[in-house]
């Protein structure tokens, strides 16, 4: 992979989760960007592990998908050494769905943003908070009293 083309904006590795995100990414990307489409956000880590060693410092990473999926891509990138300024997300319009990080057992599951959730692992009833962790790629689920 050659070094970044310094004549324009930084080149981007765009990781889209799902077909709809892939189509959205294709519309917004430039020719020198690398677009990879995965079926599930769980595949983001595998794709990043394969792609990042081919890149040079200076590239940016973009996560495209639902709010939850884009956040998961961002968390996977940060876990692999990306700095916050190097990662952006393009959430699609269904931002009412979020990934919820259980404050009791740390399991993650999806929920509606405005709903009360039950942790699928430990069963604790959780209130979906507004506290979003970029590292975990999820919002905090607070046990209901």
């Amino acid at each position: 992979m050659p070094g970044p083309d310094v004549s324009g904006p930084p080149p981007r590795l765009v990781l889209a989760v799902g077909e709809r995100a892939g189509a959205a990414a294709a519309e917004r990307c430039a020719a020198r960007d690398r677009v990879r489409v995965v079926v599930s956000a769980d595949d983001a880590a595998t794709v990043l592990d394969a792609e990042l060693p081919r890149l040079t410092t200076g590239w940016r990473i973009v996560g495209v998908g639902t709010t939850a999926d884009a956040a998961a891509v961002r968390a996977a990138a940060l876990a692999r050494g990306a700095l916050g300024e190097e990662v952006t997300v393009w959430p699609l319009d269904d931002s009412w769905r979020v990934r919820v990080h259980c404050g009791v057992c740390h399991h993650q599951g999806e929920s509606r943003r405005d709903a009360l959730a039950a942790c699928p692992a430990c069963g604790t009833a959780l209130a979906v908070s507004d506290q979003e962790s970029r590292v975990h790629g999820a919002v905090l689920g607070v046990p209901r009293a």
Binding site: G3, P53, L55, T56, T57, G58, G81
Partner: peptide
């Protein structure tokens, strides 16, 4: 050195 530095340098 800088243009060719691997990711996460």
């Amino acid at each position: 050195a800088l243009r060719g530095a691997p990711w996460n340098s």
